[in-house]
Structure formats: C-alpha cells, structure tokens
C-alpha cells in the first residue's frame, strides 16, 4: 500500500502580472489530497500573488486567494510548512484546475520563474496531524 506522495506541479511565469491557468491530474494511486505547499523563488514575491484551485470540480481556493496564506518562510520546519485541508478532498486521478497570478511590479522579480505547488497525497483518510 502506498501511503504518501508529494506531487509537484510546476508553473512557469514569464512576465510581470501574468496570470497562468493550468490543468493537471493527481496521481491516481492516492485517495486524498491532505495538504498543499506553494514555493516561490523569493519570499518577497508572496505579496499580492494569488492561486485559485479547483480539484475534482470542487472549488478549494478562489482565484483571488493569496499565496501568503498557503505558505511560509524558509525557516519553517518541513513538517509544518504544509497548509492542511480541513475538508476531505478526493485525489485518485482527480483533475486539478488552477490559476496562478503574478502581482506584477510589486517586487522586482527575475522573470521567468517557476512556481512549485506541492500536493501532499495520502491513502489513509485517518491520517491527520
């Protein structure tokens, strides 16, 4: 039985203010999306950056949901850096639709850059922190 997976989704942002839509699917060997972590190349870029997310047709985050509410600084321990979903979100090959929006001009970011979204997938529904 495979219990854990950290599935990575990379999104390329080419220009300031760009809003990128992406569609992927979760690994079908895992039943539940337990948590999420979003990684940006510079923590100053968190201000104003937003991520919308819909999994299996279920809206998880509105398009205006700020990334700074989903992530943390580099100094945070690995075991605490994920944002845990309170509700049950089905994985198992679910379609993940998202929109990442760069705030533009707030910070002199180096373009292009990659955003990494990590989905923590599990099989055991009882697995809670």
């Amino acid at each position: 039985m495979k219990n854990h997976k950290f599935q990575q989704i990379r999104i390329r942002i080419n220009t300031s203010g760009e809003s990128v839509r992406f569609t992927v699917e979760t690994d079908k060997l895992y039943a539940i999306v337990k948590a999420i972590h979003v990684s940006l190349p510079d923590s100053r870029m968190l201000v104003g950056t937003s991520l919308g997310l819909k999994i299996n047709g279920q809206e998880v985050f509105d398009d205006a949901h700020e990334v700074r509410l989903l992530t943390c600084g580099n100094q945070v321990a690995p075991n605490k850096k994920f944002f845990h979903f309170e509700e049950r979100i089905e994985a198992g090959g679910s379609t993940v639709e998202g929109r990442f929006t760069d705030p533009g001009n707030l910070y002199k970011a180096k373009y292009p850059y990659d955003v990494k979204v990590y989905l923590w997938l599990v099989n055991d529904p009882q697995h809670k922190r």
Partner: peptide, 9 residues
C-alpha cells in the same frame, strides 16, 4: 527556448 507540459499518471 522553453516549453513545458503535464504528463501525470
């Protein structure tokens, strides 16, 4: 110069 695509499962 750069291209990416998704190929899960």
């Amino acid at each position: 110069l750069y291209h990416h695509f998704y190929a899960y499962n």
